[in-house]
Simulated scan of single mutants.
Amino acid sequence: MSERAAPFYCPYCGEEDLRPSEAGHGAWECADCNRAFRLSFLGLLASGIARASASPSHEGGDGGADGS
């Protein structure tokens, strides 16, 4: 299994001088703005799947109404 991706820039100042923090997994430190932050994965959104499947059927209904 591969490692998780590292952040490319600080979410506060936008600089790229980031280092892993000793505070634990997912914790990072920015040397430019002197801030520490943590990244974590919360989970998948079940509602996102429902919206994606509802959109094509809704668009198909509009297309039939225009053709009549």
Rank of each mutant, 00 (worst) to 15 (best):
A46T: 10
L18M: 10
A36S: 12
R51Y: 07
G64W: 07
G60E: 08
C10I: 08
F8C: 08
A65G: 09
S57M: 09
G26C: 04
D66K: 15
S57W: 08
A36G: 05
S53K: 09
G67V: 14
P11Q: 09
R19M: 05
C13T: 06
E22D: 05
G26Q: 01
P56R: 11
A27P: 00
G64L: 14
S40W: 14
D32G: 00
L45D: 15
Y9L: 13
D32F: 02
G24Y: 03
M1S: 07
S57E: 15
C30N: 00
P11T: 08
G43S: 06
M1I: 04
S2Y: 03
G24W: 00
P11V: 12
F41I: 06
N34M: 06
G24L: 01
R35K: 09
L42K: 10
P7T: 02
L44P: 02
E22Y: 00
A46L: 11
N34C: 04
A65C: 10
L18H: 04
G14K: 07
M1V: 03
G67F: 08
S40A: 09
S47T: 10
Y9I: 06
A52F: 05
D32M: 03
E16V: 06
G26F: 02
L44K: 13
A50V: 13
G14E: 05
A6L: 10
S57C: 06
N34V: 02
G48E: 11
C10F: 05
L18S: 06
A65M: 12
E15H: 13
E16H: 13
A50S: 04
S57A: 14
P11H: 10
G26W: 02
E15A: 15
D66W: 09
A52N: 08
L44I: 12
E59Q: 15
G24I: 02
A31C: 02
A5S: 14
G61S: 15
S55C: 09
P7Q: 03
L39P: 02
G26H: 01
L18I: 09
A46D: 13
G43K: 03
A5M: 11
G60Q: 09
S55D: 14
L44A: 12
F37R: 03
G26N: 01
S53A: 12
P11M: 13
R4V: 04
E59C: 12
A52P: 00
